[in-house]
Amino acid sequence: MSDTSAFITLRGVHRRYRLGEVEVHALRGVDLDLHQGEFTAVVGASGSGKSTLLNIVGCIDDPSDGTVVLDGQDTARLSDDAKSRLRNRKVGFIFQSFNLVPVLDVRENIELPLLLHDEVGAAERAQRVEQAIADVGLAEFARHLPDKLSGGQRQRVAIARALVTRPALVLADEPTANLDSATTHKIVDLMIDLNQKRGVTFLFSTHDEKLMGRVARVVRIVDGVIAP
């Protein structure tokens, strides 16, 4: 049964792909509901299917079987351009290795997804970028290029970039994997703070058991199956 109040619903999702001669069955019938404003961690060992699950939720990968409904839209029915638009409007991504554009400064990196919002004028765009920079505490680094920032600061830029479009959902794929312990907790604190202040739904993957106590909901995934 589908949960009609869920912002995201996955039903019977399988994902198979070929890795050389071998067929990998990364997800094996995943059912999952995420509600607006939830802060959820997907926990599992390396290769358990965490990233595949996040990719499918974020419409950057397609399930081999099953359905994904995001904000009322069955993603299987969407064209590639429509999925791009959906990602830009509804989803923010935070990557493990930040994925910032090295030739753009902090402000310009954060501005990138907003460039696709024709309805947002230059003045409003600048204001929203400034707000996002302030939210992640990087105001004094606004004109710095990524290679002048620490790992934690770069991830803050990535968080600001994910939030600047005011998405309903932020997907963070092992956002703290490249960070030290102290920075990890600061980043998690920041995401929780933004989740509580803005009501943004967060879904992040991690294999760090120490973070389990920090989040409201934990989804465990083992060999492509969500553990009961």
Binding site: G58, I60, D80, D81, S84, R85, L86, R87, N88, R89, F93, F95, S97, N99, V101, L112, P113, L116, R161, T165
Partner: peptide
């Protein structure tokens, strides 16, 4: 390649 993937993830279409 990863940067292209990042742009696509942020919502840039193939054409963009």
């Amino acid at each position: 390649t990863r940067e292209v993937g990042m742009f696509r993830a942020l919502g840039f279409s193939r054409r963009q």
